[in-house]
């Protein structure tokens, strides 16, 4: 980690190993109706990092690179989406590094096609291998505190618990677990990945203390992706501010805001 980075606090910026981001929103590049729509959503979101998938090149036709459609200022975060074993995810990560010359990898090892829930065991195994090989690993995993600790012990730069199934848009289904993770791991970079459906979901994730949120479908499948991207940007800023401000305690009964003394009789 460079000295410039250590001087920046996690309170001010999103920090992933030596990478420092002003925006706490990370977004995907899939499911958009057109490249133009994707690009305008990316611009509106203010995101500085986008995730892309690794796939076989179609051999029947030479193609322009999808990466050419991305704003060149964006940091690319290759993912291992589609992998079902630690071994395949490690191979995919190595290929991505070779092609992009980046050590960053969003590690995904899926355990089940219906839910796309992660296989935590395989994810941990892959994380250990990749960290040893010098990767900056951001693992997607289910919201389990003990797994979070193991992933951090393995040397992951950030951890990415899900809030709901990938692409479900159900919103944050696990506020208690995310809050426990935040409280028990105060120094970890926690990025909520998957499940956000609309702006208030992103705000809730941030209010629970997440350092950032990664989303794809909520923006790409909105009727107006650029508008939703703006909403997400604002929601993440609002949620972050609310977390830092510290919310009032919840009470079961009313508590008057105006003084009781001096009321006319």
């Amino acid at each position: 980690m460079s000295s410039a980075v250590t001087a920046v606090s996690r309170e001010e910026k999103l920090i992933v190993a030596s990478h420092v981001f002003s925006s706490r929103l990370i977004i995907g590049t899939g499911k958009y109706r057109s490249h133009e729509e994707m690009r305008s959503a990316h611009n509106a979101s203010g995101a500085e990092m986008v995730t892309v998938a690794v796939r076989r090149v179609p051999l029947d036709r030479s193609r322009e690179s999808f990466l050419d459609y991305l704003n060149p200022a964006l940091q690319i975060l290759p993912n291992t989406a589609g992998c079902y074993t630690a071994e395949d995810s490690v191979r995919t990560a190595r290929l991505a590094r070779e092609a992009l010359q980046t050590d960053l990898v969003k590690l995904e090892v899926i355990g089940d096609q219906t839910t796309l829930f992660p296989d935590n065991e395989q994810t941990l195994e892959a994380a250990r291998v990749l960290v040893k090989e010098g990767f900056v690993v951001l693992p997607y995993f289910s919201d389990d505190l003990i797994m979070a600790k193991k992933l951090l012990d393995a040397g992951c730069a950030a951890i990415m618990p899900l809030a709901a199934p990938i692409g479900s848009g159900l919103g944050v289904q696990n506020p208690a677990n995310l809050r426990i993770m935040r409280e028990q791991l105060p120094d970890a970079t926690i990025i909520v990945d998957a499940g956000v459906g609309t702006a208030s979901d992103a705000a809730i994730a941030m209010e629970l203390g997440a350092d950032g949120v990664l989303m794809n479908t909520a923006i790409a499948e909105a009727k107006d992706p650029a508008k939703m991207a703006t909403a997400m940007k604002l929601a993440i800023e609002a949620g972050r501010l609310a977390y830092l401000a510290g919310r009032m305690p919840k009470r079961l009964y009313a508590s008057a805001s105006s003084p009781l003394a001096g009321v006319i009789k």
Partner: peptide, 12 residues
């Protein structure tokens, strides 16, 4: 031989 490139994606 496997030859890969990048495509749009978020997760799965």
């Amino acid at each position: 031989v496997e030859i890969v490139h990048f495509v749009g994606g978020g997760a799965d």
